[in-house]
Design a protein around this nucleic acid. Structure first.
Lengths: 126, 126, 126, 126
DNA sequence: GTGGTCTAGACCACA
DNA sequence: GTGGTCTAGACCACA
């Protein structure tokens, strides 16, 4: 099961972080179950067309933060007990940034803040 | 009226792009009206604690894309006629990505999709 | 094959733009073929005696306009499909300006219009 | 008789130098005869929409190089004996740069080097 | 090794 | 005072 990762070289986010984000998203949505094996570094690098060093960097960060575990000679696996999210100290700031990014990304494609809002409502009702 | 910009050095996105995004958001939400003066490069750099060159790079990019206009010796101003956004070919896809990123970012900080939705509603009512 | 670039510090044109112009000229005359590698930022900076940042700025502008492509960790290359030039609305006006500037620049150095013409012929025959 | 000056803010050449160039061109082509009066700094600044300091800077440079003379309380006049052009030491380099600029400017408007060459021929036959 | 970002600071162009 | 260019040099991302 290949991870669904679309790299966006125009987004300004380093490739190794985009990989980490995609893995986190797969974990958050259950596409990647606890203890399930991830693609090998070599395979994922091949799939994405990047240097294996770049995937390795992402896996290293994810392991350091407790999201995945690598077992020497066997492969890399989703953690059984994922780390709990940090308490929100700066809730207001986080929300403002989420809003801002959504609005900018929408404006870049001709969508108004209200378009985005309406879409969110629709998705949450589903 | 200082632009509300919070830089996030852990996000991987270059500082100059975070500045551009914040200005674009201010333009998109009307906080910055056409022809309104932006903070000077020096002032914004001081406010953000970054080097003036970094702000200058952001302003240069924004000018190149037609969002702002800088007048040497006078200052930098929001464009009167902002560039029209490209037609939305894959509206559904764009909206899905915006939603996904917002939700993943929220989850990372312990915020639910409904928290985000409620926050959007609040901001749009303002 | 080093790019033939002579910087003129008395011309008033910023160095990074002179570099861009020289690259564009090399592309226009075929001295630089599609997908051919350009000198690295560091090498060109050394050759010209300028700061690498200055070359980087030129390359960045050229990339933004689609003339070249930079591949991180690998180098910088002439675009395979250069951007199409805008349609010539005021062809006559553009040609007149080009002629005038060439002649004035020549006169400033004691060269006649015929000297310039003869030189053009020679270069196009090469 | 207003000098025919079109400032081009996208050319990278400082405004005060574009003014100098236009005056030099008018002198070279005889539009401005020896001892003929130039527009006052104030008038030319108004005509061009620039700060008088900018025109003053141009006139100062032109006077320093012997192209014009300012007579206190009377105005500014074309020199009676214009300075002779410098001997061409680096003829080859000057010609190369003239060629390069012409080609780049043409390419920017969809004109080939041959278009420009043909145009030069036409103008010289006239 | 090659490109990308950022800083600190100098000096210039224009109003 | 405000924006524009350039340098010297540090550190990071990617191959």
């Amino acid at each position: 099961m290949p991870l669904p990762i679309d790299l966006d070289y125009d987004r300004g986010v380093p490739v190794y972080r985009q990989i980490s984000e995609a893995v986190l998203a797969a974990l958050a949505t259950g596409q990647l179950a606890p203890d399930e094996q991830l693609p090998t570094i070599h395979d994922l690098a091949g799939q994405l067309g990047v240097n294996p060093n770049t995937v390795a960097r992402s896996y290293r960060d994810l392991e350091r933060d407790g999201h995945i575990v690598s077992r020497r000679g066997r492969g890399t696996f989703a953690a059984i007990e994922p780390p709990s999210p940090p308490p929100v100290h700066e809730r207001e700031e986080v929300l403002r940034q989420i809003f801002e990014r959504a609005v900018v990304e929408g404006a870049r494609h001709g969508l108004t803040p209200r378009d985005i809002f309406a879409d969110f409502r629709r998705r949450l009702k589903k």
